[in-house]
Design a protein around this nucleic acid. Structure first.
Lengths: 217, 217
DNA sequence: TAGATTGTTAATCGATTAACAATC
DNA sequence: TAGATTGTTAATCGATTAACAATC
């Protein structure tokens, strides 16, 4: 058993945890109770070595000669990620994307609590989405005083994301999930995770392009 | 100048190209015409070495003693990614997310052509989104016969993604942009790019959790 | 020309895989 | 116990950074 103080786990390992979590959840749903790194590796298309190395960054979750108890491992990964912490989440920018994200089933299932939506467009303010009324941006400060929030989902246009991010940082936000087509610059203690959709689509385009080149030569 | 046949550029380099493209586009908009790897590296928070190494996977785009002509480099990266190929794109699954993606401004600006939306929910079929009428899934085969498509955006629930993906592969799709909360299994010649939103949110949660742990100890 | 900056090689760093002793 | 599989160390592989000769 390693120290709880998982100080320097490389980010590349962290980014694999949600995928493990996903596969383990699936197995659990199928009623499977234990699994070896070898058979999990075959399902996931990675090496068993990598799975064991990754998990051992956090502690000895397995049992020699037996493998891993799926329920336990699933729970532990959830804890590492902080899914039981019930992070309070707000959506800033209730356009098409913001509203779609509000209705995204997965987030609340994974323990995130959607508390409010904000926008400055009169056309959407007052609309009810996923049981919540879209509030004007002016209410942001008051909301943070009363309720507070851990995570803000940034679904605003590129042009306003800088200003909005600064405002949220001033209000004490802990993490920003950024969907705008630009990187944002925040103090080091604020966590940022970017979802650059256009970047991802361009990467897909590259793969097609490469495939086409390959077949022509 | 290296060979055009950019066969073995590591994926990790490819994934950085859209970000270069983004920064270069921004500079271009600001009227900047040339840049050195050093000053670009400062803007982007990466090393100048990495920029030069990355770009040299594709050819000598720069000029010693001068740097890179932004317009030229921007164009070249666009070509590498295949942005001028006008990839025909369809959205399968016109729920909240699918409809939001249809309205996403960035894609058409980057050369992707949205041709059609499909869904099997009577409640949305016939609705007009972004100038296109949502069609029933039955029309898929006919559409591919008449028009064809390169990329399908998969915004269907996890439960049907496997079936939908198989169907699209049978129709000759070249790339799948997968938004469902599951990995998909397709023949090797079909490109897949996953956008696992929940995975990304969990990664963000980890960062918050780590931050909190750190401040408590 | 002198200064600047690339393209590219070599050195370093980090991540993945292989191997195996420990042990359930 | 014997077989299986982990945890962990060592070996390999790949990616990043540093350095510098080439050259604009």
């Amino acid at each position: 058993m390693k120290s709880e103080n998982s100080k320097n786990v490389p980010m590349v390992v962290i980014r694999r945890l949600p995928r493990y979590y996903r596969y383990l959840g699936e197995l659990l749903k199928q009623g499977v109770t234990r699994i070896s790194s070898k058979s999990l590796s075959e399902k996931m298309g990675v090496t068993a070595s990598q799975i064991r190395q990754d998990l051992n960054c956090f502690g000895g979750f397995g049992q020699q000669g037996y493998g891993y108890k799926i329920e336990n491992l699933y729970y532990e990964i959830g804890e590492i990620l902080g899914l039981s912490r019930g992070y309070k989440t707000v959506i800033v920018g209730a356009g098409n994307l913001g509203r779609a994200l509000a209705n995204h089933a997965g987030f609340e299932k994974r323990g995130f609590r959607l508390m409010a939506l904000f926008d400055n467009d009169e056309a959407v303010i007052g609309k009810k989405i996923h049981g919540l009324t879209i509030q004007p941006m002016d209410h942001l400060e008051e909301f943070f005083e009363k309720e507070g929030a851990d995570i803000a989902i940034l679904a605003v246009p590129k042009s306003s994301v800088k200003e909005v991010a600064d405002r949220l940082v001033a209000l004490g936000i802990k993490g920003l999930w950024n969907f705008s087509y630009t990187d944002i610059d925040v103090p080091e203690h604020v966590a940022v995770e970017n979802v650059h959709l256009t970047d991802s689509l361009m990467t897909l385009a590259y793969k097609l392009t490469k495939e086409e080149m390959g077949s022509k030569e």
